[in-house]
Design a protein around this nucleic acid. Structure first.
Lengths: 199, 199
DNA sequence: CCTACTGCCTATCATGCGCTAGGTAGAAAT
DNA sequence: ATTTCTACCTAGCGCATGATAGGCAGTAGG
């Protein structure tokens, strides 16, 4: 039970993530969710206390899994910049290959305590990236004339908007996108500048 | 009537944009929208045929206004890179100072023809940026080893995700963010590279 | 055999929804 | 003076929703 991938609760959670992503939280009904699982809508309430709790659990799952997936590639032996590269790559690929789970759904619909919990987890996750960025600034590989905070926001902007337009059928592989975004993040897009251009 | 900024239809449109952004399209009711305007919910239907049409009109307004605002700063006398800088700056500032209108709301809930219309307008808008990027690649100011399409996606990623976390009270001014993002887009984030590093 | 528990079911409740029908006060037009 | 139009109103229809209550088949333990 619980985390058993074949358990019903788990199936409900994953199917709910898919349904919420398709139709939005408010427009998705428990009955339709049941239909997709071969259940009656009311049976959902045996596994979850409310539709809102389901949304909360999806968010928790999203944050914990992406954190796990990114933790896997953090190699302390690598220089900070390369750690960051590996983390960014893993982040993009994870998000794009699991769009149901990681799509931004009505976070605002969550009760304040639950929302605060999710936001706290998000900040913890962002801190992981912030730490590497600050380290790379300290060892001189990343520019320091822009704050680490700002660099992190830029990186997440680059990585996260993708999920709203990405279509695995017609767009490039997630792997290629991840690489291109990080190249832009590191090198920028202007043609190779002359020496010493930036003070 | 119509575009008169004091006209009721206009007030409904703007208030609906705010309400939809706050609660989501499905969770926002016409009655609540009416309450905010000093109307009964049913009176909305004198000005709009359906709630869905309201959502469509909001999207149309979003696309036309941002296009107008960006068109204003396109100066053919400038080099392509500077045109692009001005456009990106105007885009970010416009979006962040008018979040109700430009927040991404359930586009998927729109009927297919309406959705297709909005997507067509979006592509036209993106084309504006794509043209400048291609021009800047041709005159040698932007790198050509990454496709213009990919560079455009990177730029929009950088610019657009912001609206989902930006809070005008506690975050930097939209103006500063716009500048920082474009700097990252152009120059990247690594410390000034040695000469001829990029092939 | 009995009991208890699990995991679902059916039936139902109260509520709120989008939207329509029909009315009406006041202004404008004839 | 009469008609028409505008911009709202009230009342309410039909329906879907989240959630609850209670039942019931199947399994496991004693």
């Amino acid at each position: 039970m619980g985390d058993d991938p074949s358990g019903t609760a788990e199936r409900v959670l994953l199917e709910a993530a898919a349904l919420f992503q398709e139709k939005g939280f408010a427009a998705a009904s428990t009955r339709e969710l049941g239909d997709r699982l071969g259940l009656r809508g009311a049976s959902i309430y045996y596994h979850f206390k409310s539709k809102e709790e389901l949304l909360y659990r999806i968010y928790v799952r999203s944050m914990t899994t992406i954190r796990e997936r990114v933790d896997e590639v953090i190699d302390p032996a690598l220089p900070a910049k390369e750690r960051l590269r590996a983390m960014a790559h893993r982040h993009v690929v994870t998000v794009l290959t699991n769009r149901d789970l990681h799509s931004p759904i009505d976070l605002q619909r969550l009760a304040p305590e639950w929302r605060a919990d999710i936001l706290r987890r998000r900040r913890e996750y962002e801190q992981l990236f912030l730490d590497q960025i600050a380290a790379a600034q300290n060892d001189g590989t990343l520019r320091s004339d822009i704050s680490a905070e700002m660099l992190m926001l830029s990186l997440f902007n680059l990585m996260n908007w993708t999920i709203l337009w990405y279509s695995p059928n017609k767009d490039q592989a997630a792997d290629d996108l991840a690489e291109a975004f990080f190249t832009v993040f590191l090198e920028g897009t202007q043609a190779a500048p002359a020496c010493g251009q930036r003070k």
